[in-house]
């Protein structure tokens, strides 16, 4: 299962953090700091997987942003790696050509999208169309 999802830029600023395991505030900030240090200096030619404490971080870099998923050691790495890409495609579609600033100013929307995509640390919906349509429904209610 996914333990947490982080979206961080190269400087380590968190743009989104979602935890599916109970952590205290200070622990969350510590995790964010450690994961950033872990992935930021890795060579692009390296694997997208890196061990983190007793788990594994699956990460992918898009321009200056790192998307990191922390999953169980036994989980299927590539499935989560492509899960990250699917999430990016959904964001890209929603914000039509997403950039970091979209995510900064609309961080609350990003949380909403994520809640339609992942729940309880598992994939809930893998159809881009279904998620985008759902977001349309929710926007109408605002």
């Amino acid at each position: 299962m996914i333990r947490f999802i982080l979206l961080q830029n190269r400087q380590g600023k968190t743009r989104l953090a979602k935890y599916y395991i109970p952590l205290e505030e200070s622990e969350k900030h510590k995790v964010e700091y450690e994961v950033h240090r872990l992935v930021v200096n890795r060579d692009p030619k390296f694997t997208n997987f890196v061990e983190f404490r007793t788990h594994k971080v699956i990460y992918r870099r898009y321009a200056g942003l790192f998307f990191s998923l922390c999953v169980d050691i036994t989980d299927n790495e590539l499935a989560y790696l492509e899960g990250i890409h699917l999430f990016v495609e959904i964001l890209d579609h929603f914000f039509s050509n997403v950039c970091e600033l979209d995510l900064v100013f609309n961080f609350h929307k990003v949380y909403l999208i994520l809640d339609e995509f992942i729940l309880a640390g598992e994939f809930q919906e893998t159809s881009k169309k279904a998620i985008i349509e759902r977001m349309g429904e929710l926007e109408k209610q605002e």
Partner: peptide, 12 residues
């Protein structure tokens, strides 16, 4: 030093 996972892995 074994992992902690949501579900006990099948192999494990």
């Amino acid at each position: 030093t074994e992992a902690d996972t949501a579900e006990l892995s099948a192999i494990k």
